[in-house]
């Protein structure tokens, strides 16, 4: 095998484009290869979404034991929204604040790894991913220890009077936002890094040779060139953060509950399927709307 490899790669050029459909025997091959996976995705991703939409229009007076009737009850939506708009708004608010914090931390990190790390690049990249090696829930619970009322962090903040003598971090919005930022930061950093790594350092030098201040160089050169990674990263951060309810449950109280907590209890505790489905569908539509507007404003749809 290695002998064959030697013969054909001496000139190492990029791979040729995919060929057109081959002769007869191969006509159906791609469909055969695709069928199992596509069928799985269709059956267990696409069809359930339709079922969710149907469930959101069930008669709200039905129950799991007596069965639900599809009565096209569009009233489920305003009812659900009226009852739970604070949690709904909170999801977007917390995810938004976490995103801003994430950008403030993630951009310098990605930039430093891509442009300043030299031979330590790979090691630092592993360090970004490494926290995800351990369980999401166990990591989040660790924040409970860090932010605990008896912990060193709260003690320190009380000593420097950033927190009152009875001030807490745990069970506050601060804890939930901090947890969200922490848990989704790697998703933001990795695509950003990929963009910044391709950034040609000579462009930055050229910019400063032409008397641009570092700030101006950043605004006019670095930032626009890192846009694809920035867009992909913010979406990868924002979408799961909005739908997350683990941080609100473990680090917050019912006063910090996000829409996920409500949907969880609608499906698993209160067994109110129409309402849970309506909220779930609303969440998806709201996220899609935000993403769509964002992509429009950001001026590129290539990431999709």
């Amino acid at each position: 095998m290695s002998a064959l490899a030697h013969v054909s790669t001496a000139s190492g050029q990029p791979a040729s484009p995919p060929p057109a459909a081959g002769p007869g025997r191969h006509r159906f091959l791609p469909y055969l290869l695709l069928l199992p996976g596509a069928a799985w995705l269709f059956l267990f991703f696409a069809v359930p979404l339709v079922q969710l939409a149907a469930a959101s229009l069930y008669d709200p007076n039905g129950s799991l034991s007596t069965g639900y009737a599809l009565t096209w009850a569009f009233g489920n939506y305003p009812t659900a929204l009226q009852a739970y708009w604070p949690q709904f708004g909170r999801s977007f608010l917390y995810a938004g604040i976490a995103l801003v914090l994430g950008l403030l931390m993630g951009y310098p990190l990605a930039y430093a790894i891509a442009q300043k790390a030299g031979r330590w690049k790979n090691l630092l990249l592993v360090c970004v991913v490494a926290p995800m090696f351990t369980s999401f829930l166990v990591r989040t619970l660790a924040w409970k220890t860090i932010l605990s009322d008896n912990g060193w962090l709260v003690g320190l903040l009380r000593d420097v009077h950033l927190l009152g003598p009875d001030g807490r971090l745990l069970a506050t919005p601060v804890a939930v936002v901090l947890g969200l930022t922490y848990n989704f930061l790697p998703f933001l950093v990795l695509p950003l890094y990929a963009s910044l790594e391709r950034l040609d350092y000579r462009l930055l030098e050229a910019s400063s040779d032409l008397y641009a201040s570092p700030l101006k160089t950043f605004r006019r050169v670095t930032l626009p060139l890192s846009m694809p990674g920035l867009i992909a990263g913010t979406l990868l951060f924002f979408i799961p953060a909005t739908g997350d309810y683990i941080n609100a449950e473990l680090l917050g109280t019912p006063n910090q509950y996000m829409i996920g907590n409500v949907i969880d209890s609608a499906f698993l505790v209160r067994l109110d399927y129409p309402q849970g489905a309506a909220l779930s569908f609303l969440l998806m539509s709201a996220i899609l709307a935000v993403v769509f507007v964002y992509l429009r404003r950001a001026g590129t749809e290539e990431v999709l």
């Binding site: 267990f44 696409a46 359930p48 079922q51 979408i239 998806m284």
Partner: peptide, 24 residues
């Protein structure tokens, strides 16, 4: 699109919709 969408959909939506399907 079918391959991309599951990566961009909140887990919450995928989880609840599958539950709705299984229960139905």
């Amino acid at each position: 699109v079918l391959i991309f969408l599951p990566m961009a959909t909140p887990e919450l939506v995928m989880g609840t919709s599958l539950l709705a399907l299984f229960v139905a």
